[in-house]
Every structure is written in structure tokens, then in C-alpha cells.
Design a protein around this nucleic acid. Structure first.
Lengths: 240, 240
DNA sequence: CAGTGGTCTAGACCACTAC
DNA sequence: TAGTGGTCTAGACCACTGT
């Protein structure tokens, strides 16, 4: 059942098999899966290993535990939004649309007080300022202004902005993105924003400000985006 | 250092002490905490127990691990939004404002197709429909329409709606809230919405639709809220 | 009562990092 | 080479659930 020589950890193999059995309908929603001690015997591993698999699946929302009763299969989720924090590029691709960019500005500058504070840097430290119009299927979707500390990305080139910035951070700069704090509000488009987005006033826009952190909790970007309300709904999964 | 007789699990006691030492500055951001084997000796417990504590703190974003190097203190977060999924009542309280309600409608009715689908019930199953104007410090903040399956809350009374609904679900109905899928968009207030919110058109509003689930992933509410854009920003923490 | 998940022990080997 | 986190074992006692 499990390959103890495999480079894939045993707990990951067990997760995989449980997932398969659930999606095959062997354990329908609401049904109990075998107890941890039973799984211990089936897979020939120790209980802590089985528990690690189950804990991961519980965290994913696929299973839930009840003390003294057992572990059960959760109901399937109605919809599956992109689980967490995504870049515009990733977001549009997952919606089946073709993302593209128009770079309006790319420069180094001194941050103002607010940006410096959010990035936890000095006002004398430089930041990249990137202004882009974001398109989906060639229709303007959002205006996006990004601030990045130059110190963190000394090698950043204009070409990297044509692809996903997060791809650059993770693959080229080899940094781990942990999460972000996001503020969202509705607003009316300003005159120049309405022009850039090809809409006529009064027009509602969704304004999102995101401060993103690496795994050591150091902020690496501030993004301020202004989305056309008619073309963009923001969907997210939240935990209690 | 730890009380093995205490009803509080040892791993929770260790978490507590590590948190304290970090906030006291004993381990500044970026510094390594003692290795797992050292902590094993300091606390006189086994390594798996220490690991459980550290894993929890890593999930909270307080620490991060690097293979072969050690475990380090993360930078403090700039701001601390309410971590996840909150009710209007909880949300306003955390912002230091006084929430209140005006109940416009409370009735049982047949759900339309969309609501029935989102709640995963039959169209013939009844739902409660609750319409409320939400106030913060006595200023209208949002219009909120909630749909709840009668089956799940056969005992629901009007009084429960004066307090937090989530409090009712968790404390009175004894159910566990796991999470929700949330869709947010900007829009212009409709005429009657503008009146209810005491604003004049054209006025931007933030529309939030939330489908909330219990720990067994069964949906228990659909909430559609319309917030005054000038008085409400939605803040959330997201994970990559 | 027997069975369940929650917690805990005292070891072990591995891959990786730093010196 | 020594130290680190990642994985794993084979047990154990507990509180809680259902009969």
C-alpha cells in the first residue's frame, strides 16, 4: 500500500490514497473513514504517521474529526476559488481569461511615508514604482500600482514585469511568499481612472490594497489596484 | 517550566512561553530560537511535543523554519486584522465601534433556485429570511440579507438576531463554523438602497456575498451585504 | 463497556547547512 | 563533522462517545 523506500514521505502517500478513495466514492460525505488504529494496520505504519496525514486533510477541509466518535468525510465544496493569494496573472488564468499588460511607468523613486511604513523601510531607501494597466482578453480590467523595495530585488528588470511578478519572486529571486494583508473598498472612479479604464462617470470601482510578506514576515510589496466593478468580482476562501 | 499535571496540554504551555519570550524581546525578529533538541531538555519533554508547539507557531506566522539551519522569529506584522471570518457584530466591536441593528424583516419562506443551490437544500425546504439594517455608532453602515436553512436551526427566535448570529450558532446551537466562500464587488447604490443607507446617488457601495460552512462543510448561511463605501473597508489576511 | 481521537514518550535515521 | 529540521516507530494514558 505504501512504499517505504520512496522519496515521497509516507504521510503524503497515505494522504494521496485517502483522497483517491474519497473521490472514488468509497467514503461518501458524512461517512466515517477507518479509525486511526485501523489505518495503522492497513498501511503498516505507526499511528503518528497516520495522524499526520489525517491532520493535513482536516486542514484542507476534506475531513473533520469528532472526539470519541471518529473521522468523517466533509461535504464537497460547492465551488473552489483560488485558495489564497494570487497575482493578477494567476487570477485571470484561473478564470479562463488571457491576461496582458500595458506598462505605463517603471522607475526607482523615494517612497512616501505611508509606503515606507508599510514596507518597513526608511524613506531614504529606494523603491521600484510600477504602474500597469491590466487587461483580460484585451479589455481593460484594472489599474495597478506596485511598490517594491529595491534592496530585496536589486536585479529586477522590466522584462520580469511582463510575466507574473510572483513567479519572479518565487522562481528567480528564490524567496518564499507567505501571505498578505488586504484592504478592499468600493469607490467612484476618478476622471483619469475612468479614462484609463475606458468607462464613463459615474462608475463604481473596487480598490484593493495589498501588503505582501515573505515567510520571515518581511513585507516585499505594496500593491494598489483599481478594478472595473462591472468586470471583476473578488472571490476568496476564509477560515473562521 | 511546564506543569505535566495541568489540564492544559504541554504543547500549549510551551507555545505560551515561547510567545512570551518573543514578545519580551528575548528572541528578536530574525534571531534563532533554541533548537528543538535544546527545548526538549529545557522543558523536560519529548521532541514530538516540542515540534507540535513550534508547528502551531509557524502556522500562526510567528516563527519560520529553515531546513538544516534552525527556527527563526518572524518580523512582527504591521497590523493585525481580525484573522478570518467574522460577523458584523464582531467586526464592529474589533474596530471599537458600537454595533446595533434594525430588523426590517424576519420570516420563513421558500428559497429561490440560487439560494437553494448555495445552501445545498431543496427548493421545497424552508429558509429563514432576515433583513437588517446594520449600524455602527448609530450611523447606517450596511443592509444585510441573510438566508438560513430552517432545518439546521429549528429553534431560531427573533431575539437571537439582536446579538451576533455566529454566537448563536456556536454557543446555543453548538455547531462549529469552519469557513466561508466570499464574493466581493463594487457597485452603485440602487435608489432604495441609497435611501436606507441615508446617502445620495450616485453612491458607491461594497457588495459582499458570503456562503458559510460548518466543519462538516455543510453550508449554513448565505449573507448578502451592501456596505456604504465611505464608511467601510474590508480587511483580511490571506495566505499564499 | 469497547472504541475513538488527543496527547505524550524516548528513541531512530535522513537530508540539509555551516564550518 | 556537528547540528538542524523532517520523518518515523511502537508503544502509552487520557477524556470522550455510544451501547
Amino acid at each position: 500500500m505504501v512504499d517505504k523506500q520512496s522519496p515521497i514521505p509516507i504521510y503524503a502517500q497515505i494522504e494521496e490514497q485517502l483522497k483517491n478513495q474519497i473521490s472514488e466514492g468509497k467514503f461518501p460525505p458524512g461517512a466515517a473513514i477507518p479509525s486511526e488504529r485501523e489505518l495503522t494496520e492497513t498501511f503498516g505504519v505507526s499511528r503518528m504517521t497516520v495522524r499526520q496525514s489525517i491532520t493535513n486533510l482536516v486542514n484542507e477541509g476534506l475531513l473533520y474529526r469528532e472526539k470519541g466518535r471518529g473521522t468523517f468525510v466533509a461535504a464537497p465544496k460547492v465551488e473552489q476559488p483560488l485558495s489564497g493569494m494570487t497575482s493578477f496573472t494567476e487570477d485571470m488564468l484561473s478564470r479562463g481569461m488571457a491576461p496582458s499588460n500595458q506598462l505605463v511607468k517603471f522607475e526607482k523613486r523615494q517612497p512616501d511615508k505611508g509606503i515606507a511604513e508599510q514596507l518597513q523601510i526608511m524613506e531614504s531607501d529606494e523603491v521600484y514604482f510600477v504602474e500597469r494597466i491590466r487587461y483580460a482578453d484585451n479589455i481593460p480590467m484594472a489599474i495597478e500600482r506596485t511598490y517594491l523595495p529595491v534592496k530585496l530585488f536589486p536585479e529586477l528588470r522590466e522584462e520580469a514585469l511582463k510575466e507574473s511578478l510572483y513567479k519572479y519572486v518565487e522562481q528567480t529571486a528564490q524567496l518564499k511568499i507567505a501571505g498578505a494583508v488586504q484592504r478592499m473598498e468600493a469607490s467612484l472612479a476618478k476622471k483619469e481612472e475612468a479614462e484609463l479604464l475606458h468607462v464613463e462617470a459615474p462608475f463604481a470601482v473596487l480598490v484593493i490594497e495589498r501588503v505582501s510578506r515573505l515567510d520571515n514576515q518581511v513585507p516585499f510589496e505594496v500593491v494598489r489596484s483599481t478594478y472595473r466593478a462591472d468586470r471583476y468580482k473578488f472571490t476568496s476562501e476564509i477560515q473562521r
